[in-house]
Computed example of a mutant assay.
Amino acid sequence: MEKSDNSQTGPQISVVVPFYNEEANVEELYRRLKKVLDKLKRTYELIFIDDGSTDKTPEILQKIYEKDELVKIIRLRKNFGQTAALQAGFDFAQGEIIISMDGDLQHDPEDIPLFLAKMNEGYDVVSGWRKKRVDNLFLRRIPSLVANRIMKWLSGVEIHDFGTTFKAYKKEVIKKVHLYGELHRFIPALTSRTGVKITEIPIKNVVRQRGKSKYGLSRVRRVFFDLITVKFIISFIDRPLQFFGLIGVIFGSIGFAIAATLTIGFYFFGWSIRENLGNLILSVFLMMMGLQLVMTGLLAEILSRVYFATHKVKIYSVEKILSREKPPAEFWN
């Protein structure tokens, strides 16, 4: 059994890997991670999350845990999705630097030292950049290119590849991020609102050799709505009234201008209300819509305050934890 030299203050590095039906890749990825991390001469932990796998992934992870005390296993009750699995791993991780990556061997553990070297330059988040992608052109590369350019424009974060899971974070940065939906791919954008230093490094993009890909065109629709969500979170999550209120004022002002024009025309130029009934209805509709949007903004403002005071609801449910150490207190909060 591997002996841990982690100090009481916790490991220096945590590697978080979610798995879903990856029985063909688990052992190989584990061996390659051990080979790379053992060379670093730094304390570390491996956190493997079984996201409700229905193949032999749980059994393989169990065997790995039994022979290596640096491995911690989190088994979720069902398949909650990659975002929830990563959130569980981030909540559990204790390393000063937390690295996330996929479990399908498309991320090369040999790139981990490159992330650490960049973190040593003072960055808070280092994102991988699949500069030379080998994915399917129409199913993966083109949708990804469009989404990345939109996200770069919306967030102002100067990186090329938001979508890859292969990233490194300072503990104090990622612990403050609360994920839901499928927002894991946009963590750099979510953290940018707090002023953290973000950069990227080129990484290898390896063709999947074993197992079945979990991605397809069905993800495009979800990514589109996630882009809107991320933009709202970055710019308006703590001041939603400015978003809804601005739109409401615009609609209300247009409606008021139409109504004012009709009023002046009626009293001073003899316009017929009957002939302008459509415009009158439009003006009333726009003013009511504007009022409703302002009220929505006020309600969202209140909900935003409640969110920041009470956002402790987990987006995952743990069935079992395999760890020789007590989980961090915040994992249960």
Score class of each variant (00 low, 15 high):
residue 158 E to H: 13
residue 179 L to G: 00
residue 166 F to V: 06
residue 143 P to D: 04
residue 163 G to S: 14
residue 159 I to L: 10
residue 139 L to I: 06
residue 149 R to K: 14
residue 150 I to A: 03
residue 146 V to T: 08
residue 166 F to Y: 12
residue 137 L to M: 10
residue 155 S to T: 11
residue 140 R to I: 06
residue 147 A to F: 15
residue 148 N to W: 12
residue 181 G to E: 05
residue 177 V to Q: 05
residue 176 K to L: 09
residue 132 K to G: 06
residue 143 P to A: 07
residue 129 W to A: 01
residue 128 G to K: 04
residue 145 L to N: 08
residue 149 R to H: 12
residue 161 D to P: 02
residue 156 G to C: 08
residue 149 R to M: 09
residue 171 K to A: 14
residue 125 V to C: 03
residue 180 Y to W: 08
residue 176 K to F: 04
residue 133 R to H: 08
residue 150 I to G: 03
residue 135 D to G: 14
residue 167 K to F: 11
residue 148 N to R: 02
residue 133 R to M: 13
residue 131 K to Q: 09
residue 161 D to I: 01
residue 162 F to H: 03
residue 176 K to I: 02
residue 175 K to D: 15
residue 180 Y to F: 12
residue 134 V to A: 08
residue 158 E to R: 13
residue 133 R to F: 13
residue 125 V to N: 02
residue 152 K to Q: 10
residue 178 H to M: 12
residue 151 M to W: 07
residue 179 L to H: 01
residue 174 I to V: 13
residue 126 V to S: 00
residue 179 L to T: 03
residue 156 G to P: 08
residue 143 P to R: 08
residue 175 K to P: 01
residue 124 D to M: 06
residue 125 V to M: 09
residue 144 S to M: 14
residue 132 K to V: 12
residue 177 V to L: 15
residue 180 Y to N: 09
residue 155 S to Y: 05
residue 180 Y to T: 09
residue 180 Y to I: 01
residue 174 I to H: 00
residue 131 K to C: 10
residue 157 V to L: 05
residue 155 S to D: 05
residue 173 V to F: 07
residue 173 V to Y: 10
residue 175 K to F: 07
residue 126 V to P: 00
residue 169 Y to P: 01
residue 162 F to Y: 12
residue 172 E to D: 15
residue 130 R to G: 00
residue 130 R to S: 00
residue 123 Y to M: 08
residue 171 K to Q: 15
residue 168 A to K: 05
residue 171 K to P: 02
residue 145 L to Y: 13
residue 148 N to K: 07
residue 140 R to K: 10
residue 143 P to T: 04
residue 154 L to I: 05
residue 153 W to P: 00
residue 149 R to S: 08
residue 161 D to A: 03
residue 167 K to S: 02
residue 167 K to V: 02
residue 172 E to L: 12
residue 129 W to E: 07
residue 135 D to H: 10
residue 163 G to V: 09
residue 161 D to G: 00
residue 124 D to W: 10
residue 134 V to H: 10
residue 132 K to Q: 07
residue 180 Y to D: 13
residue 172 E to N: 15
residue 123 Y to C: 00
residue 157 V to H: 05
residue 122 G to V: 05
residue 135 D to N: 12
residue 129 W to M: 05
residue 131 K to F: 06
residue 162 F to L: 07
residue 147 A to H: 14
residue 153 W to F: 15
residue 159 I to R: 04
residue 128 G to R: 04
residue 130 R to N: 02
residue 128 G to I: 07
residue 139 L to R: 09
residue 131 K to Y: 09
residue 172 E to F: 07
residue 127 S to I: 13
residue 175 K to E: 15
residue 166 F to M: 03
residue 156 G to A: 03
residue 167 K to I: 03
residue 136 N to C: 14
